[in-house]
């Protein structure tokens, strides 16, 4: 609890407040001037971030969650990201916690960022509990006519098509795959993931992310999953 309170107190000025403040909107935040002191470069080793046990996942690690890159749903466990993904799950804040935090530390959990929250906590339009679950579209778009009864569908075999995109876990292809491998990754399949084709790049990309904000998280009183050398 003490750690959680410390995080909230220190994060406030940086996170720029949370929903529920009421009253008039706060002033536009002014970027904090960059510090003039030169920090000693820190070299992060991120392997522990991929291998530590993630709370609430039945013993999964980040690596087993993202390799192969599929969205796992165990019908015998409560539904909710990362066990499946519902529309209102705060997947990015949870994913950021998985990528950055050390869960051997008391008080840190997959919900550490979501409880602040770090990112917007909900969609701008409410979802529905009933089919089709998504909110109606924004604006005044032209809808397709619903009067048709006969349609001209292609019947070509899968082999006639050229790959464009693939996705499993949210944000993995976008955040943990570098530019030089993006098309390769999207053309590949989970079997290539399982064979380790992209493991080195995922380590490299997470190291870059850790280089960017690992020290800030430490300054906020959080223990990061990366180790320093």
């Amino acid at each position: 609890m003490a750690r959680a309170l410390r995080i909230a107190a220190m994060a406030g000025p940086i996170l720029l407040g949370a929903c529920g403040g009421g009253g008039s909107p706060p002033p536009t935040p002014t970027p904090t001037p960059a510090p003039t002191a030169t920090a000693t470069p820190v070299s992060y080793q991120v392997e522990n971030c991929f291998t530590q046990t993630l709370p609430g996942t039945g013993g999964q690690s980040m690596r087993s969650m993202i390799v192969p890159d599929t969205l796992k749903l165990d019908l015998n466990r409560p539904s909710g990201f990362p066990n499946g993904r519902d529309l209102d799950d705060p997947v990015i804040d949870i994913t950021l916690a998985y990528l950055f935090l050390d869960f051997s530390v008391s008080g840190q959990s997959p919900m550490t960022f979501a409880n602040l929250p770090l990112n917007p906590p909900r969609n701008d339009k409410p979802f529905s509990d009933t089919f089709p679950f998504l909110a109606p579209p924004q604006g005044t778009p032209q809808f397709a006519a619903t009067t048709g009864t006969s349609f001209d569908f292609r019947t070509d075999p899968d082999s006639a098509y050229t790959s464009v995109d693939r996705m499993g876990m949210p944000a993995i292809a976008t955040a943990l795959i570098g530019s030089s491998l993006k098309t390769t990754y999207n053309d590949a399949n989970p079997t290539a993931d399982a064979a380790g084709q992209f493991g080195a790049d995922q380590t490299l990309q997470l190291t870059h992310l850790m280089d960017a904000i690992g020290d800030d998280l430490t300054d906020l009183g959080l223990k990061i999953c990366a180790r320093t050398s």
């Binding site: 940086i14 996170l15 917007p120 909110a135």
Partner: peptide, 30 residues
């Protein structure tokens, strides 16, 4: 069919965090 975009995330905050090396997320900005 056509629906509201269901994803919510401060993309600008992530990009600034990465490029500036400081946490720049804003939970009012989707």
């Amino acid at each position: 069919g056509l629906f509201d975009e269901p994803f919510f995330f401060d993309l600008q905050g992530f990009r600034e965090s990465r490029s500036m090396g400081r946490i720049r997320f804003d939970n009012r900005r989707n």
